[in-house]
């Protein structure tokens, strides 16, 4: 079944209809979330009562729009703060990991590479609880032995950042490592022949070559952190990030304000996704 082999028309059309259905299935949930953000009703459901921007801009207790909902805005800030640190940490460690695995040969390299992939295989909830247990026992130890209360080892922002960093680093390492593997080593050798030092080669040749992959991995890391739920749920405390706030609201019974937040999220991640696709296109050419 390829274009060059003729098939009965009925079969071809059935196949096309199936593909169309598949894409409707893919788009439908996102389309309804976006549409109901503009419904002039207290509930994100039918009937359609006309178009409104209230769920973005309104500021009454009954209809609280996103831009007036300080709790929601605060959690966006918390998420951005977390995502910034997760991105910075994971890109740094991922870059060193990429050099380690692509440029050096050492004993147990394959075994260590497999260990490096491990965080992807561990369910997010379990990664979360294991870090919770470890940091808690360390905090208890500090308390008992040194009589010190180490605040950041209890559930909160630092633990959320560490928990997300634990698995996002693996993904970033794979992206940056793949780019480093494709690099033409003769570029570096040429620079060495011309008398460049190791640091200047790194600064002027290797890192600029890696930059598209680092930007791409950075975008992915930021988005994954911003949208993470499973690991965050286990490690968060009173400063809840956006996904946790939305989850709590969703269980209380949602208003179209949630749709408005979701639509804004979709737009931001869509733009970031386009940027990363664009960066990758440039990387290939």
């Amino acid at each position: 079944m390829i274009p060059s082999i003729s098939q009965p028309a009925s079969l071809r059309w059935t196949y096309r209809a199936y593909i169309l259905l598949f894409y409707i299935f893919l788009i439908a949930p996102l389309a309804v979330v976006a549409t109901f953000a503009f419904n002039d009703s207290l509930f994100p459901s039918l009937p359609w009562n006309g178009f409104t921007l209230d769920w973005f801009t309104s500021d009454t207790p009954q209809r609280l729009g996103v831009f007036s909902d300080s709790a929601m805005l605060e959690s966006v800030g918390v998420s951005a703060f977390i995502a910034f640190w997760v991105t910075a940490l994971s890109i740094f460690v991922a870059t060193t990991n990429a050099f380690l695995f692509e440029r050096y040969d050492f004993r147990f390299k394959e075994f260590l590479y497999m260990l490096m992939l491990l965080p992807l295989v561990i369910p997010g909830v379990i990664l979360g609880i294991s870090i919770l247990i470890s940091s808690n026992s360390m905090a208890n130890y500090m308390d008992e032995v040194f009589n010190l209360e180490v605040e950041f080892l209890r559930p909160g922002l630092v633990l959320v950042i560490l928990g997300q960093f634990a698995f996002i680093t693996t993904i970033a390492t794979m992206v940056i490592g793949a780019r480093l593997r494709k690099m033409d080593r003769s570029l570096e050798e040429a620079a060495y022949n011309l008398g460049a030092t190791k640091t200047s080669v790194l600064r002027t040749i290797t890192l600029p070559y890696l930059r598209p992959a680092m930007i791409g991995a950075g975008i992915v890391a930021f988005l994954m952190s911003f949208e993470n739920f499973n690991t965050t749920l286990m490690l968060t405390s009173s400063d809840s990030p956006l996904t946790i706030t939305m989850f709590d609201r969703l269980r209380e019974g949602s208003t179209p304000e949630l749709n408005a937040v979701s639509l804004l999220l979709m737009i931001v991640s869509g733009v970031l996704a386009l940027i990363s696709v664009f960066v990758q296109k440039k990387e290939d050419s």
Partner: peptide
């Protein structure tokens, strides 16, 4: 690319979409 787009959106938003449906 169209296949990939929904997955750039948070799982929470996707699930919320299914709840509305």
């Amino acid at each position: 690319l169209l296949c990939l787009i929904p997955f750039w959106v948070s799982e929470l938003v996707r699930t919320y979409g299914w709840m509305i449906l």
